[in-house]
Design a protein around this nucleic acid. Structure first.
Lengths: 219, 219
DNA sequence: TAATCATTCAAGCAAATGATTGATTGATAG
DNA sequence: CTATCAATCAATCATTTGCTTGAATGATTA
């Protein structure tokens, strides 16, 4: 019953590699290890897992060649393997990013219509940030904001915007942004602000684009 | 108990994508779909799965965005999604290739010693192939050979070599190759041939390198 | 409208996977 | 040599996954 077909075997290998990356805990461990060599116990506390569980995931990763070990006294230090791991992770992240955009587009498209609110380009925003006179508004969740945001941005999640309008200075143009080109949050926010008499534009590209362009991000 | 941490969520998404690719059957289906639109039933027979099982895997792939569907009469045609799928698969294949090379190195190294048999470079081999006078010998399995080999190569798997020696023309230099730089097959083959009075060299790099260099490959 | 065909759904089962616990191994320090 | 500490192993259990079977859906054709 064993398939000797080399074509099938290739797929089995490929699948095993993919499955190794198919668990959030292992991906988290990989990311920490990518920062530098770490002992098991440290990785366990970084990922909030038990030591035994961590050890098992690490061995799974090692079987697939994603990590390597060396002993240092009584500790075992894990480091990244030397294969083209980054390429795999990057392509995965790229794919995930694409999917998020697609989903957002599906949700946002009907609402988004076409350009009901003026948008502002990244370059123009940069210029306006320097010359001043605008309020930069991040309408994503507090969690997302905490994870990184545009410099000087004020954070009011879209669903809290109406009751927190007083926090926005009057008389200044507002530039709202959220997750990306098709994120619906900044659109609804812009509609609300306009109704309340603000002058408002949206940063079309959103946060990921800003970050990808290598511009500064505040934590 | 739900983790709202966006960092964790990102990893969960990534893991789900990876896990979708973590099954040989789904990878096989993807490959067939990559050739062009196909109805479920055709995919089922191509992959030798039941229709229901195929349908389930396809829906898994669709949830992850790897494939899309359209109806044509009573059939449902599956086609590739429009995300950067090829990038993901290519990086995976690249990683798998790297791992195979590493494993081979581990197995072969002790046997391989250092250059017990003369090796021949890719460029020199190319020249010799044109001027003639050598027998190019592929000592990998018949399956691997069938999947692609160097132009004009004769295929005698290493373990059949001894009893099929008569197939090799006498008086010509033999160049043996197998899977890669550390593949043990061509080393043992060279040892045998030398003992039998042949002049023999090994192609150090092996088949994958040849292919990677963009040189012609026969099916 | 009924009959047929391709696909999907739903239930059930076997196998694989992930997490926990407690025992075991390997290495240092007293 | 014993005590201690980090990591791994081994056994167990709950959950998830993959596959099969038979019924339900959606679209065509008679």
């Amino acid at each position: 019953m064993t398939k000797a077909d080399p074509h099938t075997l290739l797929f089995t290998d490929l699948a095993e590699i993919a499955r190794t990356l198919g668990h959030a805990h292992r991906l988290m461990l990989l990311e920490h290890i990518a920062q530098g060599e770490r002992p098991v116990e440290r990785l366990a506390e970084l990922t909030d897992l038990t030591v035994a569980n961590t050890s098992q995931h690490l061995q799974h990763l090692r079987r697939a060649g994603f990590v390597e070990t060396r002993r240092d006294g009584k500790r075992v230090l894990y480091r990244l393997g030397n294969g083209p791991i980054e390429a795999v992770l990057t392509s995965l992240r790229g794919y995930a990013e694409h999917m998020r955009a697609e989903i957002r587009q599906l949700i946002a498209d009907p609402i988004n219509a076409d350009g009901r609110h003026d948008s502002i380009s990244r370059d123009e925003l940069l210029e306006r940030l320097l010359t001043g006179g605008i309020t930069l508004l991040d309408v994503r969740s507090t969690e997302e904001y905490a994870f990184g945001h545009l410099p000087g941005a004020l954070n009011i999640p879209a669903d809290e915007l109406e009751r927190r309008l007083s926090e926005l200075p009057r008389g200044r143009e507002v530039v709202a942004y959220c997750r990306g080109p098709y994120c619906v949050l900044s659109t609804t926010a812009a509609a609300l602000l306009e109704a309340k008499g603000f002058r408002v534009r949206r940063l079309a590209a959103g946060f990921p684009d800003w970050k990808a362009a290598g511009l500064t991000v505040e934590a």
